[in-house]
């Protein structure tokens, strides 16, 4: 109990520092790279004077630290601000309408935008993780048990192929073959959960090599631990040593990979794949926000993604310390 409390307090504090740093970085970067959001908001027709006025009114001309402090003040109350671009009705507003002023009140709140997109992304990510574990665990474990033999080689070839497939290419090929030609699965947009299958599959293929590799390494290195041979001399069967001990202990490195690599990779690829499939998740929201210089949306998604990563890591590490108590020391 004490350990758990100590662990979580410590890790949460560290995590908070990381999140604040990431937020600062994103915030600053957005404001130093070229591209003025006011231009996209008001469109090319607005005069420079009006643009400047709007920008000042929105606080975009204040020094960055001041802007950041204001932003943080908002965020702690749970308010991530409003989108620069999207209207509350859900449609994206371009600058082409040529209005002279910018009315913040009819813009969509960022939190609302994200909350509508999150369930779609969760479905996609969960499905992707599931499919990829289903593919890679049997292959990886077999490779680890028969290290140096054909399952090991098979695993290696398979992962090499998977790694060398660019996800966007694979997405296009699958859309063409399975959806357009074969008509087996829907691909573009979202109507029901079957729309998530194809993109999830593409993500799963991208995730699998990491899992196959770490499963096979974890299992084969555990098989070499002295306790495995010793156990068989003590009178336990090889099958039992593998099932009860080796697989259990191999979970620890796997969990770590899951926590760090997999979630990171997933977050990155999610953007691309959702865009490719026009899948209405957080990724698509983010990509569009980047194109439109929609600062509040970009910031919010970056901060939340970072928070998610930190949380998953804490949970994964905590799970690992429960499998192997030595990690608590």
């Amino acid at each position: 109990m004490i350990f758990a409390l100590d662990f979580f307090l410590r890790r949460m504090a560290q995590g908070l520092v990381i999140i604040v740093l990431v937020a600062m970085l994103i915030f600053t970067l957005l404001r130093v790279v070229p591209g003025d959001p006011v231009r996209t908001m008001l469109g090319p027709m607005a005069s420079a004077e009006v643009a400047e006025q709007t920008a000042q009114k929105m606080g975009l001309r204040d020094p960055i630290p001041v802007q950041f402090a204001k932003y943080v003040g908002q965020v702690v109350t749970g308010d991530f601000g409003r989108s620069f671009v999207r209207s509350a009705q859900g449609a994206s507003t371009g600058g082409s309408r040529g209005g002279a002023t910018f009315d913040a009140s009819n813009r969509a709140p960022v939190m609302g935008l994200i909350l509508t997109a999150v369930p779609y992304s969760l479905l996609l990510a969960g499905l992707a993780l599931g499919i990829s574990l289903l593919i890679s665990l049997p292959i990886g474990i077999a490779a680890g048990l028969k290290s140096g033999k054909w399952p090991d080689r098979l695993a290696l070839y398979l992962s090499s192929i998977f790694v060398s497939l660019p996800n966007i290419w694979l997405a296009l090929v699958l859309i063409f073959l399975v959806s357009v030609k074969g008509g087996l699965l829907p691909a573009i947009g979202y109507q029901n959960w079957t729309y998530a299958i194809l993109p999830a599959f593409v993500l799963a293929i991208e995730l699998s090599p990491v899992f196959i590799r770490s499963a096979s390494v974890a299992v084969s290195s555990n098989m070499l631990e002295p306790y495995v041979a010793a156990g068989q001399i003590r009178g336990l069967s090889r099958a039992r040593m593998i099932l009860v001990h080796v697989l259990r202990n191999a979970m620890i490195p796997l969990l770590n990979v899951l926590g760090i690599q997999a979630i990171g990779l997933l977050l990155g690829s999610l953007f691309v794949i959702e865009y490719a499939f026009n899948y209405p998740g957080v990724g698509l929201l983010m990509i569009n926000a980047v194109f439109q210089r929609d600062f509040p949306v970009i910031q919010a998604i970056a901060i939340l993604a970072c928070t998610l990563l930190v949380l998953v890591n804490i949970l994964v590490d905590f799970a690992a310390t429960n499998i192997d108590r030595r990690l608590q020391y």
């Binding site: 631990e225 002295p226 306790y227 010793a230 156990g231 003590r234 001990h245 259990r248 202990n249 499998i323 192997d324 108590r325 030595r326």
Partner: peptide, 12 residues
Amino acid sequence: GSDPTTALDPTL
């Protein structure tokens, strides 16, 4: 054997 510390599964 001579190394008792590695003879058992370290996690149980």
